[in-house]
């Protein structure tokens, strides 16, 4: 039996529902040495800012139980270099591109989104309002993550929505009391989808040196350790949203991805698992197809939100 893996993410048609989490897959080329990245539903690239960023000091990584803490600080080549050096490879591959963008102000996001659209540098925009590792973002109400402030989420999303017609995804933070408020704020402001979840704030201390393990002191926790939290947040959001959810957080194998679909995600992103196993995303895609066949489900769409209570 053939199964229909295609999904529509707020106007972005994908041949299958598997992408990668921003920051875990570089700009695609890094992993094309291991598999043909055009097999993915989409490639989500590392955050792009207007100007190049050096990011945080090292050490930036520490391993923790069933996961890792990172504090990269959005090191990236900047928009110009992305368009000149990274984009041509992705376009040649023909894989849909979700461009994750990061700015300090709504104006910067607007400039990023509109320049990406003009340059055909993306097929969808993923707005990163939830990076825990940068210290230069503060909303008017003094909250350090835009995604923690539903009014700011609405303000940023609305501004970008007005400037760009590409499908607009808003990546939200799990570091909130309730995920439904920022998710609804994004939807009402015109987002076409939300991405859940970014990393959880965490830290680790070296008992011998008494120093934090990360130069940035705190970092973002990812990996299978966070998966139950991510599944629950997808479920919370799915019950109140009309727009699709791209689910992510500790997906290591196909059965993990299935959990996200059942909880209400329309697509999934493989993140840290690509670090451990470079071909993980494609194996997960194959596993999803096998699952559908095994359960005689004709299309992935039928699985979305199909958890039984």
């Amino acid at each position: 039996m053939t199964v229909d893996l295609s999904v529509n993410l707020g106007g972005l048609e994908l041949k299958n529902p598997v992408t990668v989490a921003s920051g875990t897959f570089g700009y695609g080329q890094e992993y094309d040495r291991y598999f043909d990245i055009a097999q993915l539903g989409a490639v989500t690239v590392k955050s792009i800012s207007l100007k190049p960023r050096a990011g945080n000091k090292s050490p930036r990584l520490v391993e923790t139980p069933a996961g890792l803490l990172n504090a990269i600080g959005l090191q990236n080549v900047g928009l110009d270099a992305y368009l000149e050096q990274k984009l041509p490879f992705l376009r040649k591959k023909g894989v849909p591109i979700i461009a994750n963008i990061y700015g300090h102000t709504p104006d910067e996001y607007v400039e990023l989104a509109s320049r990406l659209e003009d340059a055909r540098g993306a097929d969808a925009i993923e707005v990163n309002l939830s990076c825990p590792n940068v210290h230069d973002a503060r909303t008017a109400r003094g909250v350090s993550l835009v995604a923690q402030d539903p009014e700011a989420v609405a303000e940023y999303t609305r501004a970008i929505r007005l400037a760009a017609s590409l499908p607009l995804f808003v990546k939200l933070s799990p570091n909130v009391v309730s995920i439904t408020e920022p998710a609804l704020a994004a939807q009402e402001a015109g987002a076409d989808a939300v991405c859940l979840i970014n990393t959880l704030l965490g830290m680790a201390v070296d008992p011998e040196t008494r120093r934090p393990r990360l130069a940035n002191i705190v970092g973002g926790l990812s990996g299978p350790a966070i998966r139950p939290i991510a599944v629950k947040m997808v479920w919370d959001a799915a019950r109140v949203l009309r727009i699709p959810i791209i689910g992510m957080g500790g997906i290591c194998e196909a059965s993990d991805a299935i959990q996200f679909f059942l909880a209400g995600a329309t697509a999934v992103a493989v993140g840290s698992m690509s670090f451990r196993h470079p071909v993980a995303a494609i194996q997960i895609l194959e596993g999803i197809a096998d699952y559908l066949k095994r359960h005689q489900i004709s299309g992935i769409k039928h699985l979305v939100g199909a958890m039984e209570l």
Binding site: G23, T24, F25, G26, E30, Y31, R33, K46, G55, S58, P59, R60, L61, V62, E63, L68, N70, I72, Q75, S272, S274, F275, P278
Partner: peptide
Amino acid sequence: AQMACGEGACLGCV
């Protein structure tokens, strides 16, 4: 360095 991917993608080992 501490390293996650070994592939130049994670930017953890800089």
